[in-house]
Structures are given as structure tokens and as C-alpha cells.
Write a protein that binds this DNA or RNA. Sequence first.
RNA 1: GCCCGGAUGGUGGAAUUGGUAGACACGUUGGACUUAAAAUCCAAUGGACAGUAAUGUCCGUGCGGGUUCAAGUCCCGCUCCGGGUACCA
Length: 922
Amino acid sequence: MEYNFSEIEKKWRTYWRDNKTYNVKEDSDKEKYYVLDMFPYPSGSGLHVGHPLGYIASDIYARYKRLKGYNVLHPMGYDSFGLPTEQYAILTGIHPEVATKDNTERYRKQLDQLGFSYDWSREVQTSDPNYYKWTQWIFKQLFNSFYCGSENKAMPISHLISFFEKQGNINSQAVCDENTTSFTASDWNSFNETEKENVLQKYRLAFLSDTWVNWCEGLGTVLANDEIKDGLSERGGYPVEQKLMKQWSLRITAYADRLISGLETLDWTDSIKEIQKNWIGKSNGVSVHFNLENSDKTIEVFTTRPDTIFGVNFIVLAPEHDLIDEITSEDQKQKVVDYVNKTKLKSERERQADKSISGVFTGSYAIHPFTKEKVQIWTGEYVLATYGSGAVMAVPCGDQRDWDFATHFGLDIINIFENIDVSEKANQEKDVIIVNSDFLNGLKSKKAIDVAIHKIEELGIGRAKTNYRLRDAIFSRQRYWGEPFPVYYKYDTPFILDDDKHVTLPQVNKYLPTSKGDPPLARARKEDWNVFEGDRMETNVMPGWAGSSWYFLRYMDPKNDGEFCAKEKSDYWGQVDLYIGGAEHAVGHLLYSRFWTKFLFDRGLIGFDEPFKKMINQGMILGRSSFVYRIKDTNTYVSFDKKKGYKTTRLHVDINFVDNDILDLDAFKNWRAEYADADFILNDEGKYICGHEIEKMSKSKYNVQTPEKLVGKFGADTLRLYEMFLGPIEQFKPWDTKGINGVHNFLRKFWRLTHDSDNNFVVSEESPTKQSYKTLHKTIKKVEEEIERYSFNTVVSSFMICVNELTEQKCNSREIISNFTILLSPYAPHITEEIWQKLGNDTSVTFAEFPSFIESYLVEDEVNYPVSFNGKMRFKMSLPVEMTKDQIEDEVMKHEKTAHYLDGKSPKKIIVVPKRIINIVI
RNA sequence: GCCCGGAUGGUGGAAUUGGUAGACACGUUGGACUUAAAAUCCAAUGGACAGUAAUGUCCGUGCGGGUUCAAGUCCCGCUCCGGGUACCA
């Protein structure tokens, strides 16, 4: 074999490992660059060809930046805590640690095969106690911090305590729970330890709170929304109910505003920024208090449209609203109780899925703050307890949901919009004039909103307020395979372990909840814990996103035993300059890690407050499924091009039996017993042609392509080039191996350019021709420009054009080949190392210098002008570059073909764009 | 419903600021080499029409309009596909 890729690739992978080629150190003489892949979860099923797409792109970029003289940090590791491994442990009894080790080893093997330039000495795993003790440490810092509203940053809780000691909480600007009661300094000083802690919990950034969760008694655990189907658990089919449970939460809502404004500094796609903005859901409005007819209490509603306050026809409370019990009249009591109970049984998801209108009148009335008229109070599911104050002022003429509700129950609809018909639907337009609204009459909405807020505040019946859709993040999981909390309890009050103490996951006899419904860790006996303090240890574990919220920092200082990451290291490496990964983490990982980064910044632990400066979201690679067509009620399969006229059933066939849509009949027959004596109707060439379709890659569709197979057949360099050649990195695209021969041939062509027919390496020492220089420098320019704008696919074309031209020029000059080898090395590291070595270099091509582009090689004496008539290109003519517009015009008019296209007419206008185009308007 | 993308040959895609549409590959067809096959090399390849031919004419970037000397690219109005998201007051 001339180009023996398997031997070459093996040789260089060994070399890189033995020589630690890709290990990096901080180096103040060099500018840093940080290229990171999104943290993979090492799943048991390994990689398919879609997974490495982003890794290849980031590797190319990292290698390119090295050639450009940067000190590049390009690490890899595993987000190794997680559910699938735990499920596997429950099923098999195999400790998750063992399964994780197997999976990461397999993953590593697969990654290594592709020739990535990771610094593996920096590998981290979230499930490694030496890693998660620092996750615990950050949790401790969150616990010991509060968010100061006046400084607009997180600060030590001790500051807050001394504030309370001096002033109580009445003038405090600290962010806290909605239901926090006021106290004075002397109140505070009289509290006992537990009382003080209960207050502090309302301020801490990591805090215990009662949270509504989907509790499944049958399984003894809390379920995620997507684990519930029709009100029953997906596994086992047990009933699920909403239950209040004490859970750890993180006060991400304190950062809501900064999480929105910080997006402006990021080079991310608009769509991800938009998703985050919507998720945080900032809305400016006003909270207004409505007095009740028969009570001293008031109902607080939140509205973004105070301009429509004279259009209020009724008020709707969420079924969970505190006041419902109290205000419901005797005659409506039974109906309301039934309704509230019914809704309680539904999961949040079910309630959201159910679009039907429901609600019950409570029988009591509120007083409109301006008109003083009676307003009916209803309860209805469409009002969410968890947003705003859990109550809305219903304006059916101006809000479609309120309109639907009013129409459904036959309630009045007052119209407050001039010349607008609200009999068919509500008016949501803001560019209309408001009428029937006392002091707002004649104003347009925008102005009326300001006027109304002003008036409401002046009368003391409410105040301007900003609401967020974002909720505090629940941080407890009733699982085993996650980070344990550094928390113990004394008299049911939580305490944090000292900084030098951390909890390692204790051994348990089973990975299931206890019979009492406590999490698996509750199975651990006192002596199973490495640390045991107080009455009991916390038995929840942290969620999957805990470890992944800060892993990019640990890569900078992975072995540090005294700190999570030394400040001088994080100051050197700084933000991730390029982050490549899927868009599916838009509101999970990408939001949480921004939150943690801002927190660590606030506390002075790192010097930047956004983790990922530039992000590229690679598109999914889809599979190309193949099909056979079985004639109904037979065991006969008809070729795709012959199936017309037959009634057939389409069946997925394993793509490993299909080459260029032609089915390997023997392989198919051997696949399954039922196909063993299959008959075939072949086409005229005696072949069975399969049908095909583009679908998501999945085992059940038999369309999964593994990198191993392709690396075996074509080599890693070919696979790397091909994955890039498929198309723009961020686009969704089908995987089709048809084209892989093309890039493989390119590498072979490159090999042949530098080897004679006996496979001896040959380069010429003669100086290259002008033409070859031009080819090279054209390529240098293109490769550099395209990589800089992350257009990885077009670079491959440039390589091909370069080798095609050099082959044509019969150019194998050492100078040209050397430079081209460097250009190609980020894409095809193995073959280029081999040729680099054969060129006589004794260090890796990794340490070469990216060739500099010299403009003068591209300068031409002549320009080949396209000549257009009325915008249509008709012919070309070469003219000297230095020619003036007038001279060009003369030359064109003299051209023999011009007369033909003028067809006797004289041109109205001649447009000459030097070095570009000539257009003659007739 | 709302928000964000996208639509270019038989296929994947290129065209970066409005300036030669279809680069580069795949596939297909024909040819060379070979006992044969594979591999390799050469040639053709958007469509239609005319011509023995060189060549010429027309059409052509989802659809309909517009701006411009010139539109895949800009503007207006649609269609279809993909993604995200939703009783968020």
C-alpha cells in the first residue's frame, strides 16, 4: 500500500503520547488561547460519527492557534456523575464507579483514535473525590454568601449578620425570599441559633426551602417532569403527586438581571441568547393591591399593563393561592374545594398541556382601587402560583387569556379602547387610544403605562416591580451517583462542614431509596461516612449540572490540592476563548455555569464574570437509513426501482449491509433467521437497490455509523477531513459515506505528490516556479481567513485545489511541500507528521510556524474581465491591471464580439469596476 | 401562536462587501490501462432548444413583486421545512 495510514497513524499516536507533545504550561511570554469542548457524559454506548464533529473542529482550531504562536489550553475530561450509570447500577448491582471507569476508558480509546491534541495530563472527572471536594467547596461559599442589592454582587454572609446585629433587616438591600418577615436589631439579638439560621436561610445563595416536587410514593423518589406520563410514573406506573419537600436551592434569581445584560458581551448565536433571555423572562410592570369587600386583607396582582386597569372585570387567583380558603363564600365552598383538590393532583406538565378553560367563582369580591366598584374573585388553573403574586387582574378586552376565560363563563367585557371591536377577540395592540378610563382617557398605552404607575405609587396602592420567569434552581436530587453535600444537621438545622472537611460518597447496600422513602444515601450507616457530624448527614446529592458548572476552571489547575484553582492560573488562562458544543444545553449548563462564574467573580476568586467568550454550536449529524421492501404477506423483497405495482412494507435494514444503496444479499440473509430464505426481485443489473431516508442516528434505525469502522477503512485523517468537508459546522446535515472516498483520494494524491512509484519519499530542491508560489500563497491566504471565521468546510476544498494544482504543475519542491504540510497539519495531523519527519525535521509539526502569506505572489499583470451586456455575462477579455477606466472602455468597444451583442445599437452607459467587471447597458 | 434559522444541479455544498451562479467533492456517462476486476488516469456533466461542428439562443438560486447598470445576496408580501418556546399576567 502506498499511503499506509494505519501504520502511520499508530506510529504518531504513540509518539505524541510518549513525548507528551500536547502538554502545556503557563508561559507569560506567549499569548494564551483556550479552546474547549463541551464536557461529555461517558455513556455506555460509546461514540458515533456525530459526536466527534465538534471535537474535530475544536482540535483543528487549537492546532491552528498553536501554529500561530499561541500557548493553547485544550483539555478534555468527563462529566461522569449521572443517571444512566446509576440506573445501570440499580439493574446490575455493579458499583457506578466501576461502570464509569469502563465507560471512560472506552471513550478515551475512541477519542485517541481520532488524533486529538488534548493535554490529557489535565483530565478531570466530576465523580473523582479530588474533583468533587472542590464542587462541595464552592457550595460552601454559596452557602456562606448572600446577594447585596446595593453593591449588586454576592458578599460574605458575615457582613449581613453584622448588619442585622446593628439594624435588623428593615433597611437591608439584601436579596431574600418573598415571605421574609421584618425584624429589628434587638429582635435579631434575641433569636436563638436555630431562629437565626432560619432567617439566614432566606438570604443565603445556597439554602434549604420547601419546594413543590413530583413525589412518587410507589418509587419513593422525586421524578423529573419527563419521567411522568399521564399522572403516573413512566417506570412502574405509580401515581405521582405534588408534594412540598425540603430541598436545597441556589438563588440564581438574584443574578437574573446580570445574566441578561452579560449576554451582550458574548459572541454566541442570537438564538441561544434569545433562549436564555426568554427563559429568564424579565418583565417590567407594577404590583397593585386590591382591597377586599369583606376582609382587611388585600390581593396583590402583578401586571405589565397598568394602562388597562379600568378594563378590569374580575380577578383570578391561582388554585394554590393562600387567600382562597379565607375568602371563599359558604355557598361556593364545596365547588372551590373540589376544584382546588382536582388541580393539585395534576403535575405541572399536565396542567400546562391542558388548554381547556376551567375555574370557579369564590363568591367574594374585591374593590377596584379607582372605580371602587365590586370585582368578582375567581380561581383558575391558568394563573400560576409560582409566577408574580399568583394572582392576576383580568382585563378581558386587552388580554386573550382573560378574554377566553370571560367568554367561557359569560362574564362582562368592558371595552376601554377607542374604535376597537373586542367582541371577537381581545386587543393586544399598544398603539391605540384609551377611553372610559378616567385620568388615562385619550392617552396611548405607552404613555398611559407611565401615568398609571405614577398614580398607583402616589396613592400607595402598589409599586413598580420587575418580575422574572426564572425560578431558583433546585439543587437536591434523591439519588446516589452525584456529589454528596458537605452538610450535616443538628436539631434539623443545616450546618456546613469546615473548609478542610469534605464528604466522599459512602458505600450503600443498594442504590435505591429506603423503605421510608429517604434517598439512597440514607442507607449508609454512621460508620460508612468518612465525615459524620451532628445528628445526621445530608442524604440528598447534587444535580448533574453541579460539577459541570465550573469544570473549565479546574482544567487550569487540575492537580491543586489546596485550592479549587489558583488565582494566578485563572488569571493567565482566563475565559474560554472558543467553546464548541451542542445547543441543547441553552438553559441548563450554559446558564448555570454563567451563574457560578459570576458568583466566583463577585467573591474575588476569579477575575472574569463570563465563562465562555465565543461559542459555536455544532449541528447534529443525521443518519441515512436504508430500507428493503417486503411484498405484503410474502418473504420476497423487491428492489427499490422495481417496487412499483407491488404492495410492500418498508423495513429498516442495517446500513452495514448496504454499499451505495446496493444490498449485500448474503449479509442480509445471515442477519436474522426470518431473512434466511428470503427471495429477491432484483433490478435489470441483477442488483438489489435499497431505498433511503435521512433520520436521527439511532440503534433502532440501524443507521449508526461508528468512527472505528471508518478509521479502520480510511484512517483518522480522512475521517477528520471528511467530517469537516460535509458542510458548515453549525448546520444539521445527513451523514453519507459516499463522499468519503473523495477526501481519502485527496490524501493519497498528496502522498503521491511526495513519493515516487516505488513509494520512496522524493522532493525537489529546485526553487519553485512563480506559478507554484502563487498556488501556495493563495492557499495560505484562504486557509487562514477561512479558519479564522470558523468556515472549516471550505478549507478542505482549498487543500484539494492546492494539491490538484501542484500535481498539474508537477511541483514537489521542498519549500512548497513544507509549507503546505504545515497548513494541512491541523486537519490531518498524522500524515503531516510523517511527511514533516521525512522532510528532515526532528520535532513535531505541532511546533512549526504557520507560513506567512506574501501578497506579491498573487499579483497579476492582467485581469480577466467578464464583459456583461445588460447584466448578462457574454464573454471575457484579459486586460492589463493598470489600465484606466477610459482605456478599458475603449478596448471593450474595439472587441470583435462587442458589435455582435450591441446589435447595431449604441450603448447608453458603460460601467467599469476596475479589477472586477464591465457592464454595457444598451 | 410567538421567537430564531433555512430553502442553490441527481447528492453534500461554494459564491466573505450587490459584480463571471454551481468552486470542491460525490454520483453518473464515455474512454485509457487490465485476461478480468479493483485501483488509477483522461474527458463530459444545471435544464431546454438550434446546429455536422466550433458555437449560439432562452430559462435557471422555494414562490410573487420591487430597488439597481447589475440581486442567490438588499427591500416588501407569501409558501414550505427545521429548531426553540408557551396559559409568565
